[in-house]
Computed example of a mutant assay.
Amino acid sequence: MGRAFLAPAVIAAALMIRTAVGELRHPGSARAQWDFASSRRPLAAGAVTAAATCLLGRPQTGPRVRPGRYLIGTLAAHLIHHGTRRRCPPPELHPTGR
C-alpha cells in the first residue's frame, strides 16, 4: 500500500514547488493557479472524474487506485478551469479585426 502513495505524493510535491517558484517570480500567481478550488464547475468535474476512476479502476487494481484518484480529480478540475478561461475574444476585440 505504501508504493501506491508514492507517485501521487511526488506529483503533488512537484505541483507545490511549481506554485511556490511561480509565486516568488510573480507575486499573486499562486492564487490565480489554484482559484479552481472555489469554482463549482471544475470541482464537480474533478469529483466525477475521481469517482469514475475509483469505480472503473477498482476491479482491475483493487484499493490501490484510491490515492491516485484524488490527484486525478484535482488535475481534471485544474485543466477544466483553465480551459474555460481561455476562450477566443469576441470578433470586435480580435487583433486582426476579423
Rank of each mutant, 00 (worst) to 15 (best):
P42L: 08
R87D: 04
R25Q: 15
A12E: 15
T74F: 05
A9Y: 10
V65L: 04
G22Q: 08
R41N: 14
P89A: 13
R98G: 07
T19W: 00
T96A: 03
A47R: 00
A20N: 11
T53C: 12
A13P: 02
P8K: 12
G68Y: 06
L6K: 05
G68V: 05
G97F: 00
I17S: 15
H82R: 10
S29W: 00
G83W: 11
A4R: 02
A20W: 12
H94D: 12
P95A: 07
A44C: 10
T19A: 11
T53V: 13
R85T: 09
P27R: 08
L93N: 00
M1S: 15
F5C: 10
Q60F: 11
L93F: 01
A9W: 08
A30H: 04
R69P: 01
M16F: 10
V65M: 04
G62M: 13
G73A: 02
G2N: 12
R98A: 12
R69W: 09
M16Y: 09
A4D: 09
P63N: 06
I80Q: 05
L6F: 12
S38M: 08
R64D: 07
A20G: 12
H26G: 00
H26W: 04
W34C: 05
F5H: 11
F5A: 12
A52S: 14
M1H: 15
G97A: 00
R40I: 14
R58G: 00
A20R: 14
T96I: 00
R86M: 08
L71D: 10
R98D: 11
P8I: 07
L56K: 14
P67Q: 07
S29E: 06
V21L: 11
G68H: 12
A7E: 09
G22H: 08
A45P: 04
V48W: 10
G28N: 10
R69G: 06
G83F: 08
P27Y: 06
W34I: 05
M1Y: 15
L93A: 07
G97P: 01
P95C: 06
A44F: 14
A45L: 15
C88N: 02
S38E: 11
P8Q: 09
R41D: 13
D35M: 02
A20P: 09
P8G: 09
L71V: 02
R18P: 00
A50I: 01
Q60D: 07
G62L: 13
P91D: 03
L75Y: 01
Q33F: 04
P8E: 10
G73I: 01
G68I: 03
L93W: 00
A45S: 13
A50F: 03
P90R: 10
R25G: 07
P63K: 04
P95G: 06
I80F: 05
P91H: 01
C54D: 05
I80G: 01
T84V: 08
R85Q: 13
H78Y: 13
A76D: 01
I72S: 04
A51F: 13
S38N: 07
T53S: 14
I80P: 01
A45G: 12
R18L: 13
L56I: 15
R25A: 15
H94E: 09
L55M: 13
F5T: 06
A50G: 12
A51L: 15
A32M: 10
L43E: 05
S38C: 06
G46L: 03
V10N: 02
